[in-house]
Structure formats: C-alpha cells, structure tokens
Nucleic acid binder design. Structure first.
Length: 699
DNA sequence: CAGTGAGCGAGCTTCCGCTTGACTT
C-alpha cells in the first residue's frame, strides 16, 4: 500500500520499444511511457495556417491519438515530475514542446526536458542527472518547417485538382523526387546507343588459357566503331609473336565502410537483397522490436531511422572484445572513427546489432529468412567497420603484338582484414582471389585466337529504390523516416510505376512534373530544401524570427500561385492508353483509364457508350472468365476473384503474375513463407510447379 | 478465425515528419 503512494518520475519517449529498455535501466522510481511520435499537429482537413495573422498555426490533437495523450496527462498528474525525453532533434523538440503545453493544462507537476543520443545505461543516467529546458528556438525551426511544408503542399495540390483532376498531390519533397525520376526518363529516351567493338586475344601457358584485352593500338586508345575496323587490326597482328613489355604490381588498401544509416541500409538491402525500401524498413522494425530467442524477447538491432554513423562507447568496447576473440589479428590498435555528416541531426546511433555476440548464424533458427538476411548485413557491416583494412595486389601484364598492346590483370587478396567478417556482403573478388598468368618482362606468348566483340553504349540507368534514396539523401531532401514513404506516395498517386526494380514515370507523372517545373521551378528544385535548411539553421540559432523566414518565401510564392490559378487553362489532354480489346456492347476500342479507384477499362465511345470493366489480370482456371482485383468490404484487403461470380466462385488472396504455369497453364502467384522467403508458384493446388525467386521486391 | 465480391462517367482528395498497429462477423 505504502509503495503505491510513492510518486514516480514520468519519462516520456517516442518509441515504445525504447520505453521498455529505458525503464529497465532507470529502475523502480521511474515510469517510462511512449508518445508514439507526434500527438499534436495541424489538422489534415484544412490549411490551418493563418497567413493574415503572422502565419499562426492551428494545432489539434492528431486523430486517433487522443487516448494516448489523455493517458499521458493522467500519468503526469500522478507523477512526482515529468521528464520529456523525445528524440534529441528538431522534431523531437517540437514533440516535447507540445507535450509540455498539453500536460500543463491538466497537471501542475514540474516538467523538464532531457536528451540523450544513445540508449545505454550510462547515457540515460547522465541525461536524467542533467535536465534542461525546452529549446524554444529549435521548436520555432520545426514550426517553420511544418508551416512551410503545409503552405507548399496545401496550395500546390488544390491547383492540380483544379487544373488537372482530383486525387493528385504535390509537395516540397515528393515533387522533387518525381522531377528527378522524370528527368532521368528524358535522358533515357534521348539516349541513342552507339555501336562499338572490343578485341581480345587468347594465349596458353602450359594447359591454361588466358584472355587479354586490347588497350592500345598505335599507342592510342582504340576507337573501334565497326567490325571491319577490328578485323583490320586482327589482320595486322595475326600470327605475330607477343612480347611481355611490362608487369606491374599495384597494392591497394581497402578500408571497411562505416556502419549503416537508414539510407545506406536501404541502398545495400536493395542492391544485395533486392528488398524494396518499404520492405527493408518493415523487417528492420521487426528486428528492432525483438524476436523470441529461447524464452526471452531480444531487440536485435538499434533504432532503424537514423542519419548518423555514431557508435556508443559501450558498443565499441563490446565489438572490439568480440573481434579480439574471434579475429585477434584484425583488431586495430584504436577504435576506427567515422565522420558524422554535417547535415545529420545525429539523434540516434548508427544501425547496429545490440549484441555483437548474437552472430547471424547462431540465431538463424529464430528468424524468418528475410530477418536473417537483413540482420546479417547489419551485423557484418558493423563488425567489419571496426576491423583492420584489407589489402589487395593487382598484377597487370602488358603484351605487345606489332602495334597492339594487350593487357591482362588479376587481383589477389593478400591481407583479408575485415573481409573475414563478410559473408552475405562479400563480393566475388573477396570470396576467391582472381588468377593471373605468371609472366615476366621479355617472355613471349603466342596468341591462338582473337575475338571481336560487338557492344553498344549503355544509356543512363533509371532510378531504383537504392539510387533515388541515395540521391535524396545527398541533396538533404526527406528524412530517414520518409525515404520509403516517398517512393510509396509516388506510386499511390499513379505518378510512377515499378518495372522490375526500376522507377518509371507514368504519362500522368510526367504531365504533373511539366506543370510544376514550368510554373514553380524554384520550389520543385533540389536546392530549395537546402536553402530551407540553411534558413532553419538561422531560426534555430535565434538569428531570424521564423515568421520572417516564412514570409520571405510565401509572398512571391502566393503571387505566382494566384497568377497560375487565374491564367493556366485546365489541362484536358487524354491520359488513356489504347488496348486491343473491343467493347462487347458497341464494338469500339476499349481504353485503359485512371479513375478514382485505380485503372479500369472504359469504352472509347463514352459518353454514347457507358461500358466499363475492371482490368483482367489472368484467366479463371475454373470457367475461363477474367480474374480481377476486388476489395473486401470497406478497408478490406485486396483479393482476386472471377468476374463470373456468383456463378463461378474462384477466389484467391494471391495476386496473379503475368505469366502462366508452363506445366498446367493455370496462372502463377508469388508467395512468401518464413523458411523459404519469396517464391513463384502455380495457383493450381494439384500442380506442384514451383519456381523460386532469388529476389522479392514487394513487401 | 475465416471470410472477403462496387464502383469509376462526381463530389472528395492534399503536405512532411514523428511513431505503431491495422477490418468485421
């Protein structure tokens, strides 16, 4: 009874997983609760920024978050004091500020702000011992950021509704991402592949056949545009003896890479594991929240939304002890330091395993395949980052034949260094050292055969999840928590589609981009965010008042906005795509059209003919009808059924793939299970055709 | 725990950033 009367100190953090850990560190006198992000924000339904009244924002409790806020207020009333421990960055400061205001309304308890940049007992205890006040200037910087994004988004978007059509959107971040993707597509289209040829020659040493590449012809880089030009060279050198003119050895030191930030994790997971950004974050969240190992639940990685490569002292000591034990020769004298980007807000550590001692292989049985893969790359990258560099030796051998210079080179690892910790992350050269021929200057070789090979110059690559995230991060656009949602929103708006792993703009996406770039080039610009961040810094340093910053941006923006609203003619170009289907009602061609609920087939004879139907995805194996996407009653998940329902009740929750089963002709679907990962399989339960996929891009 | 079944062509939609769960019978 008496214990209940002892008032505890209420600590409020953002993430519930963090709350649990911190409560453990702080002990009985503290109660740690989570806000789960922002609880108070601008309403979604209206602008809620009073441009006449000095840009005063109107804040409300976020829909669905009222109970959390009420509970926190209740807890605060019963507490001895409150410590606001939201993340130590701009958004975190704003969360703390809103919480303080809300708690003050209901409870007369002392409220302080505490901050820490890592979840370790030392850091937490130190933070608790050094409370401070909320940094009002930082809060103002967040306010400016929030208001600016609202003004941009909620002004540009209705312009698109009015001039193009409903359901569209525009914003400081998404519209720049769209622009990048569209401009890259322009380059891809403008690119004209050029033919070129290369020449290689085979020679033998004992039993082994080696292939050398032509690198110089008459002392110049060969510029071979046609097969005839290659043959000319071959004619000149055929039958001549080759002489080794030089053998060079180049040694190279290769340093390990820093531990993962969110952006780097998404890039590597996309490139190595074929994970979409969204999937990477979902799986990382699972690892962060914890998996059951034995009877306990273990959070396997640190927080996954971070822009920093910083590592806690405690983790450094642990990983060094681990390396000492497992790879004793690869432990550097001192811990390896990595530079934290100047633009990073640095509120969290890098993404790393919480305990290095949980080696991927030792806990594989407790993880799904995807969890195992993602955990492995996080673990490997972290351990490797604190090991000694690797060393390679490249032997490059030049062989002269007449006026031609051929070269053959091979690289060998001479010191494995951090490569020893890499398994999934290892690349070919790291796994097995390349061969090279044992030749020395003056040796002669006989070329048995020459090969002319035709090539074409490659155009610029389209953006992928990996490369768009990389670019956005480099330009400072978006934050770790938004990289994945940015890609999703472009797809949800039908601005961009995914083809294999590539991001391809749709006709609609390119139209929207053209409008935005034509009339708002300064805003839909990679430099706009950089300028904004620069100004926010001035607000944060209390050099500029946030309203002045916003006003300077808003006045010209508003003028331009009014002008475009008034003078731009509504865009009426057709976005319909022709199909080879004919309307069964009137015989005219059907077209693919984008409606409120996605694409559908419509008769091109509209409005005389009102025939519409869903897009067929596959042929029904039961009755030959069309399989189409359906939604279970409101908010339900999408499923796939036959258009002849209820006569035919064929039904599946798996999305049909474009190809049919080569064995029975039924359609194929992609399934996932924890043991095997993703695979393609025939929908026919009696058919066991299975086609495994190494890559799964969908989440 | 399993079952899930329109419409689009009119009258609602939207921003960025912080965080997790998530339908009905």
């Amino acid at each position: 009874m008496k214990q209940d009367e002892v008032k505890k100190i209420l600590v409020i953090v953002e993430s519930p997983a963090k709350a649990k850990t911190i409560e453990k560190y702080l002990g009985d006198h503290y109660s740690v609760k989570a806000s789960m992000g922002h609880l108070i924000d601008l309403p979604r339904s209206r602008m809620a920024v009073d441009v006449e009244q000095n840009f005063e924002p109107e804040y409300i409790t976020v829909r669905g978050r009222a109970t959390i806020l009420k509970d926190l207020q209740k807890d605060a009333k019963k507490a001895a004091s409150v410590m606001l421990a939201s993340d130590n960055d701009r958004e975190g400061e704003a969360i703390a500020w809103h919480l303080r205001n809300a708690i003050r309304e209901k409870a007369a308890v002392p409220i302080v702000r505490i901050a820490f940049n890592e979840i370790t007992p030392t850091a937490i205890k130190e933070a608790v011992a050094n409370p401070s006040d909320i940094d009002e200037a930082k809060v103002n910087a967040q306010k400016a950021r929030r208001v600016l994004d609202r003004l941009v988004g909620y002004n540009l978007t209705p312009l698109l509704w009015k001039k193009v059509k409903g359901g569209l959107s525009a914003g400081r971040v998404q519209s720049v991402a769209l622009r990048l993707i569209c401009e890259r597509e322009d380059e891809v289209e403008a690119f004209i592949p050029e033919e070129y040829w290369t020449l290689s020659g085979d020679f033998r040493i004992k039993k082994t056949l080696w292939t050398a590449q032509l690198v110089l012809w008459e002392r110049e880089k060969p510029n071979l545009k046609t097969e005839a030009s290659v043959n000319e060279i071959i004619d000149c050198i055929k039958g001549k003896e080759g002489t080794v003119s030089e053998v060079r050895e180049i040694e190279k030191t290769i340093k390990p890479k820093p531990p993962f930030t969110t952006s780097q994790l998404q890039q590597v997971a996309a490139n190595r594991l074929s994970f979409a950004s969204k999937k990477t974050m979902q799986v990382a969240q699972q690892l962060y929240e914890g998996v059951s190992i034995g009877s306990s639940r273990v959070g396997l990685i640190t927080y996954m939304r971070t822009d920093s490569v910083r590592i806690s002292k405690q983790a450094l000591e642990e990983v060094r002890a681990f390396i000492q034990e497992v790879y004793p020769d690869e432990l550097p004298e001192a811990a390896v330091e990595y530079l934290v980007e100047k633009t990073a807000q640095n509120a969290h550590e890098a993404i790393r395993p919480t305990y290095t001692t949980y080696r991927p292989d030792s806990i594989k049985g407790h993880l799904s395949l995807d969890q195992f893969k993602l955990y492995s790359i996080i673990w490997e990258r972290f351990v490797a980052s604190q090991m000694k560099p690797a060393q390679t030796k490249t032997i490059s051998t030049d062989i002269v034949v007449g006026d031609a210079l051929f070269r053959i080179s091979g690289t060998k690892i001479i010191k494995k260094g951090f490569y020893q910790a890499l398994n999934i992350l290892a690349v070919k050269e790291e796994k097995n050292s390349a061969h090279y021929p044992c030749l020395k200057k003056g040796d002669t070789v006989i070329f048995e055969q020459f090969h002319a090979e035709q090539h074409f110059t490659q155009g610029p690559p389209r953006y992928t999840d990996a490369s768009i995230v990389k670019t956005l991060e480099e330009k400072g656009i978006g934050r770790p928590s938004t990289y994945a949602p940015i890609i999703s929103v472009l797809q949800d708006r039908y601005y961009v589609t995914r083809s294999n792993k590539q991001l391809v703009p749709t006709v609609l996406g390119r139209l929207i981009n053209t409008i935005l770039v034509s009339y708002f080039p300064h805003i839909v610009n990679v430099d706009f965010t950089a300028l904004m961040e620069h100004n926010l810094d001035s607000v944060e340093e209390d050099l500029v008042c946030w309203q002045d910053m916003i006003r300077e941006f808003y006045q010209p923006f508003k003028r331009q906005l009014d002008e475009v609203f008034q003078n731009l003619e509504p865009i009426k170009i057709s976005l319909d795509e022709p199909t080879d289907q004919l309307c069964e009602k009137c015989g005219r061609q059907m077209v693919k059209r984008l409606g409120r609920f996605g694409y559908f087939l419509a008769c091109s004879g509209f409005p005389e003919c009102h025939n519409t139907k869903p897009i067929p995805l596959a042929v029904c194996p039961q009755c030959g009808g069309d399989i189409v996407a359906r939604k279970a009653q409101k908010r339900g998940k999408e499923f796939y059924g036959c258009t002849n329902y209820p006569t035919c009740n064929f039904f599946t929750k798996y999305k049909p793939l474009p190809q049919n089963c080569p064995e029975c002709g039924w359609f194929m679907v992609e399934k996932y299970d924890k043991v095997n990962g993703s695979y393609k399989i025939c929908i026919n339960p009696a058919c066991n055709y299975l086609h495994s996929v190494e890559s799964s891009t969908e989440s």
